[in-house]
Structures are given as structure tokens and as C-alpha cells.
Amino acid sequence: MVRNRYGFYVLLLSACTVGYSWLLYNFLTLNNHTHHKVICLFKKVTHLPCPSCGATRSLECLLHGKLTQAILINPLGLIVAFILVVAPIWVTYDLITRKSGLYHLYRRVEIQLKKPVLALPLVLLILANWVWNISKGL
């Protein structure tokens, strides 16, 4: 799927489009945080939140300018927001200037993340966030 630069950029742009559409749909149809649509397979099956459940609510808080509340709902929302903002700009820049900076960065990060020194703390962080999500009852 990401064997070459274009495959990666197409995938990233489509993911961002879906992300923005999903966010817009939630923003337009739901103002009340208690009646959120559950789309997460994991939550539907187990009735427990997955590590990234609450990311949409977190992003909505960010859109309303409530940074602290966004972090309290799910800190992963910030990472998603960062990717949603940076990725389309960087991809457009790369495509216009015919560079592949983002693709090379992705490849480098992927190789680095396979090292246990880096992977283990990140996995532990995700697990800690998961436990936090379950205890919050998202």
C-alpha cells in the first residue's frame, strides 16, 4: 500500500479527507457530548473503550479552544489534530515541489520505531492511556 511515494500520499490524503468529513459530520449533527455515535469496532464488541476512543470528542474540544479538556478526554486527539493539520500541507508542498520529504520521514520514523528502546515506552504509554480511558468510561 505504501510501496512508493504516490501510494503513501494518496493514502494519507484520503485518510485526512475521511477524517475531516467525519469531524464535520460530528460537528454539524451533534452538539451534545453525551450522545456520540459509536463507530469503534472494539467498543461495539467489548463495550470497553479502545486506546483512541474519545479522539473525536477531544478534537471537538480543540475546535472549541478547550485545550485542557481535550487532553483530559484523550491526549491522542492532539496527535491526530497535528497530523490532520500538517499532513495535507506537507503533501501539497511535496507534490508541488516534486520532493518526497514527508515520505522519507515516514520511512525513517518507521525504521526507528521498530527499535525496542523506542517502541517499548510508546507501547507502555498507549497501554496507560487505555487504562485511563477505561477508568474514565469513555
Binding site: 500500500m1 505504501v2 485518510a15 477524517g19 463507530i39 469503534c40 469496532l41 472494539f42 467498543k43 479502545c50 486506546p51 483512541s52 476512543c53 479522539a55 491522542l76 496527535i79 491526530v80 497530523i83 515516514y106 520514523v109 518507521e110 520505531l113 521498530k114 498507549i126
Partner: peptide, 12 residues
């Protein structure tokens, strides 16, 4: 596919 894994993890 670590990158795609993170993509899937972050988006449920």
C-alpha cells in the same frame, strides 16, 4: 508496517 499500524491505532 509500523506506520500503518499507528494510523489504525489512532483512528479506532
Amino acid at each position: 508496517d509500523t506506520g500503518l499500524g499507528i494510523g489504525k491505532l489512532l483512528t479506532c
